[in-house]
């Protein structure tokens, strides 16, 4: 199998490390060679962050380049736009519609671009956009945005639900498992 690429993007502190850990675990269990590349340190302080997940028969590079991503999984819509050029032609975007103002917007030095989902659609790109924050709150915590997104992403994978559930159980602290299972189910039950 040709190597498949996922990039997970968002704002530092939003929980992308758990999402990549869970995906890595799941894909390894499916028998793939897997590499995950993360960002630690300064950029985690509210900066733009990206995590790369690659899987296939044999994976070499740990990073994903422009035009290579089969999936962009995004925690925030401006970050979706920022990393858009990483999407492969025909690739799928799964994104939260939440807006978090970056400091240049807060200080008035820049404007937050309007109607990003519409603009991405007009480019003919496949975008599955949803308000993950509301769903995460419904599940019991605004921090479960990452799991809502994974629930949605599971639609695009030919991997049975039991495997996702097992990956959840193995990577989420037991006291938050029910909450996260609910978040996963809410993300999964969405229809476009």
């Amino acid at each position: 199998m040709e190597t498949k690429n996922i990039i997970i993007v968002g704002v530092g502190g939003q929980g992308s490390l758990l999402a990549s850990k869970l995906l890595g675990y799941l894909l390894l269990k499916q028998g793939y060679d897997v590499k995950v590349s993360e960002v630690h340190g300064m950029s985690q302080r509210g900066g733009s962050v990206v995590t790369y997940v690659r899987f296939g028969d044999r994976v070499f590079s740990p990073v994903v380049d422009k035009g290579e991503a089969d999936f962009i999984v995004s925690f925030e819509i401006l970050e979706t736009a920022r990393w858009l050029s990483y999407l492969k032609p025909g690739g799928q975007i799964v994104t939260n519609t939440q807006q978090i103002d970056p400091m240049p917007v807060i200080t008035g030095a820049a404007e937050y671009p309007a109607e990003l989902v519409e603009k991405i659609k007009r480019k003919g790109l496949k975008i599955d956009a949803m308000d993950c924050l509301s769903l995460a709150r419904e599940a019991g915590s605004p921090k479960a945005v990452n799991i809502v997104l994974l629930g949605r992403l599971s639609h695009y994978f030919d991997i049975e639900d039991a495997a996702w559930q097992e990956a959840l159980s193995a990577n989420v602290p037991p006291k938050f498992l029910e909450l996260n299972k609910k978040a996963f189910a809410l993300g999964k039950s969405l229809t476009q």
Partner: peptide, 20 residues
């Protein structure tokens, strides 16, 4: 050969790290 993707015409404001 290298790969490339599509970008929006909009200027995307940078998101530098900030004090929490």
């Amino acid at each position: 050969e290298t790969t490339s993707g599509t970008a929006l015409e909009d200027a995307i404001p940078p998101r530098p790290p900030v004090m929490c």
